[in-house]
Structure formats: C-alpha cells, structure tokens
Amino acid sequence: MKILAFDTSNTAMSVAVVDGQQLLAEKTVNVRKNHSIQLMPTIDLLLQDAKWTPQMLERIVVAEGPGSYTGLRIAATTAKTLAWTLGIDLVGVSSLQVLAQNAAMLEGQWICPLFDARRGNFYTGLYRINMDGQAVVIEPDTHIALVEWLDYLAHQDKTIYFVGEDAWKIKDTIKKHLADRAYFSKAILQTPDAWQLSQLGACKEVTDIHTFVPQYLKLAEAEANWLARHTLQEGESLVDTY
C-alpha cells in the first residue's frame, strides 16, 4: 500500500512517503516554522524523491490531534482534501499514539506521551507496547490538569515511560509524584515520526472524508460556556448551507 503520512500537530512537522512497510522518503523539521507554508512543498518534494505521482497514492494517514489547533486544522484540511481529490482512503491517528509508538522497543511497558496544553493542563493518554511492538491504548487521550493526571498515574502500580519534549520540560514535577517509577525517553524518541504514523495508519480502519475533523479533545472555550447554559436541540444545525 502506497501511503503519504504527515503530522503537524505541534512544533515539529514530519512527512513520510511509505510503500507498505518500507520508507521511501521522509522529512522532519523541528523548529518553529509555519506549517501552512511548508507542508505542501514538502509533500511535493518527497513524492518526487520517491518518484511517485500523487495519483499513485492509495492512502493518506494524518495525525488527527490533540495538539495546536491551527496545526491540526492545516493537517486535517490538507489530508481530507487530498484524499477527496485523489479518491483514496483517509485514516486519522492520534498524535499522542504517534509519540508513544516511538517507544515500540519497550515491549509490555506503559508509555505516557504528553503535550503541553497551557495553563497547567496537558493532552495525554496511556499506552502499552504489545507483542507486535504496537502502542495500544490503556487510557484514552484526554485534556487534563497535570496534577490530576500525575495523581492518577501515581496510583497505578507500574513503571511509566514518558515521551515527548514537553514531558522532559516537566521532569521534576513528574518525579515528585512518581519518584523512581518515572522514566524519560531519550531525545531521539521525543519527536513525532511520520514513518511510525504511516504504520499505525496502515492497519487502522478508514474514516469518512467529509466528516473528518481534528480531535481537539477540548471544546472551543466560548462553545463550552454556551453549552453550560444552553442545550442544542437534537438535529439542530448551526450552519446553513444554501
């Protein structure tokens, strides 16, 4: 299966062109740059390197979130429009699972990927590496106060491997809660890797293109406030098409 995979959910942008399990071309940029400017030119470049035309692609795999709202939307919009135009499959994969998958060699271990969501909150989830070397979900992705999450982890009788650049930044806080049960991945495993993403997406169920949206894991604040005071009637649409 000929796959184009990309992740722009945080600072890093990673794009890979993969044939089955074989990587043909990949580029990861980990400096704060504008994903909107660089994503399409990178896709073009890598497909050229692989000597493929866009028409040869069979599947688009995209990191669907959580992460930076703007980054997620650039990836999701590009992915769904590419898949729609080419008439090929679209698959969304959790951005946190992509990070957890970096720890694939730690069979049987518990992996906790983290992204900073500001104001003391994090996007996180809990994964376990199964016998096939795949990160499978133990605790689904969530948006949560760091203290609450670490408290939950402290009550699990397990050693936990933390992955992600943001996990490294709060190392001391994590250690305070988990003491010697917290391990931290090496720098080499902290950046999302679109090759890993492609492999997670290769065996995942295909999603509907039109209704595909990022997994923000958080309502827009204004929406959350409105919903606290109102209820949306069933079937009521807030967008009218004419």
Binding site: R73, T77, T81, H210, T211, V213, V239, T241
Partner: peptide, 10 residues
C-alpha cells in the same frame, strides 16, 4: 475555523 474544517470538502 472549526466549522470551516467540517464543511470544506462537502
């Protein structure tokens, strides 16, 4: 922005 992503390809 969220609505735009929902409706763009439709």
């Amino acid at each position: 922005s969220r609505h735009h992503v929902e409706f763009i390809t439709l």
